[in-house]
């Protein structure tokens, strides 16, 4: 995907975000002391700025899109980006139920495999030893609370 097209897409997303932000800013309660700005003042200023900048980016993107030279197609989002994000999301879902120590072992193993570590022995050793080490370092060494699970 070319950069001008990306600019058009992102500017439209920003227009949507800016409009929603403006709508919710207008819903804020009007509480002000005399002639001075209330809680909605700053958000309204920002809304105006965001909408103006998004519109400018959109115009800029459209103009560049017209003058654009044909380019080689950019590779699609690598599968590994999606896999890593999905793995992160699954980890975060599991975390409140099984806690840091249990959830981190498969998470660590999965990321190691995504880093092209194909030998199972290093994966098994790394994914157990490092989360356990971090758990004891932070929980016992530094007395920092780590996510605890409801089930465990």
């Amino acid at each position: 995907m070319s950069m001008p097209l990306k600019n058009v897409i992102i500017s439209m997303i920003m227009l949507l975000i800016g409009s929603s932000y403006l709508y919710f800013s207008l819903q804020l309660p009007v509480r002000s002391i005399g002639n001075v700005p209330g809680p909605s003042f700053f958000p309204l200023v920002i809304s105006a700025i965001v909408l103006f900048l998004a519109a400018a980016l959109l115009v800029n993107g459209i103009v560049n899109l017209r003058n654009e030279q044909p380019q080689e197609a950019e590779p699609a989002v690598p599968k590994r980006v999606i896999s890593t994000l999905v793995w992160f999301v699954l980890y975060l879902i599991a975390l409140p139920y099984v806690g840091f120590l249990v959830a981190s072992v498969p998470f660590f193993a999965g990321l190691m495999m995504l880093c092209e570590q194909k030998k199972l022995v290093p994966v098994a050793i790394g994914s157990i030893l490092i989360p356990v080490f971090l758990y004891f370092l932070f929980r016992q060494g530094f007395n920092i609370l780590l996510p605890a699970g409801q089930w465990m």
Binding site: F88, Y91, L92, F107, F108, I130, L134, I144
Partner: peptide, 17 residues
């Protein structure tokens, strides 16, 4: 393969703590 997952865990610890 050891460094990156460790950073991932530290990101989680850093934001939770």
């Amino acid at each position: 393969a050891f460094m990156m997952p460790t950073i991932g865990l530290l990101c989680v610890i850093g934001s939770y703590a």
